[in-house]
């Protein structure tokens, strides 16, 4: 039951991301200059006089540009149109009353559409980066834990080094040697690589501890005495013990990477501006007015929560439990807050 709910959430995220061009009423960089930070336009069925209509919205009229106050024009109904211009639904009159299910951001762009388009980059990037971290982390942690001794010390201290290096300067130094204008694909690859490197120590640390502990257990000793090769022992018997841990690590890395993308954009290693991502959307919403007046700007946080909840439910029901997953949240904090 809960597992099904988890899968539903994840499926919804995937559908939203892949179906964005159809589902989103607007392109991610369509701007409505007269509607900066305008509130959501909720579809209505009943008008003020109690009559029923097909779904419609009320337009916003600007009351104060400087204070960004709008009033609903209750005398005008703008209908919704379905399956036109290649989109599922939209307003019949975009110039007068664009459909904005989650309001507009400070550039007058539709938050709902950006949320859908942003899911593509944010989810893809965070998942690719998390997998990258996993591969590197398992390799390093597995070797360190299994071989032990000097190799262990070397690999673990290298992990520590990555953890405390000021990431901002690494990014700045990287930025200065790269061309000024980076294509989205390049940025994607670059960010995924950086995140994978930064995330790997968290995984390697735990994997090492587990492999080390398991190695000394009776069954491992027995398998080894039966003449299993090192690689086989590690891959078939020791690493699977870390599976639960790794899975939980990934669920914690994913939200951290989503947010960290906005952090790296501060030093210029971000996607070109019109490209939507949850991280930059949340970064733009990080001011007091979002809480006070424009709560819809925080919707990417809600979306992130649903994705994390989905991941969590799905994993938990797979019967895996984390052993020592926590360093991740710490690292996440470091990444996010710079």
């Amino acid at each position: 039951m809960t597992r099904l709910f988890g899968w539903t959430l994840l499926a919804a995220a995937v559908v939203a991301a892949s179906g964005a061009p159809l589902l989103a009423p607007h392109a991610s960089d369509d701007q409505f200059r007269g509607l900066l930070n305008a509130a959501p336009t909720f579809p209505h069925l009943v008008d003020d006089s109690g009559h029923w209509h097909r779904p419609f919205i009320y337009p916003w009229t600007l009351v104060s540009q400087l204070e960004q106050r709008y009033e609903q024009d209750r005398s005008t109904r703008v209908g919704l149109v379905w399956f036109t211009r290649g989109r599922l639904v939209g307003s019949a009159d975009d110039s007068r009353a664009p459909l904005m299910l989650l309001g507009a951001d400070s550039y007058g762009r539709d938050v709902f559409s950006r949320l859908l388009f942003g899911a593509r980059i944010s989810l893809a990037l965070s998942i690719v980066a998390a997998l990258g971290s996993m591969l590197a982390g398992v390799l390093i942690g597995g070797l360190a834990g299994y071989i032990g001794g000097g190799v262990d010390d070397l690999l673990m201290r290298a992990s520590d080094f990555v953890l405390v290096l000021p990431a901002m300067y690494v990014a700045l130094a990287l930025r200065s040697v790269l061309p000024l204008v980076l294509a989205s694909g390049t940025v994607f690859g670059l960010l995924a690589a950086i995140f994978a490197v930064v995330g790997a120590p968290f995984i390697s640390r735990g994997v090492r501890a587990i492999v080390r502990a398991e190695k000394q257990l009776d069954y491992a000793v027995a398998v080894a005495s039966l003449g299993a090769g090192h690689a086989r022992l590690l891959a078939r018997h020791l690493l699977p013990a870390a599976r639960g841990f790794i899975v939980v690590e990934i669920t914690m890395l994913v939200p951290a990477f989503i947010v960290a993308e906005a952090t790296l954009s501060y030093v210029g290693l971000g996607f070109p501006d019109p490209v939507a991502s949850w991280g930059t959307m949340l970064h733009d919403a990080s001011n007091v007015r979002a809480f006070a007046d424009f709560p819809w700007l925080l919707s990417p946080a809600a979306a992130m929560f649903l994705v994390v909840l989905g991941l969590n439910l799905v994993m938990e029901q797979s019967g895996v439990a984390p052993v020592m997953g926590a360093p991740v949240a710490e690292g996440a904090g470091r990444l996010q807050s710079e």
Binding site: M252, P255, L282, A301, V308, A329, G333, Q336
Partner: peptide, 8 residues
């Protein structure tokens, strides 16, 4: 709490 950015 785990999915909220620390800034927020």
């Amino acid at each position: 709490l785990l999915s909220m950015p620390p800034l927020l």
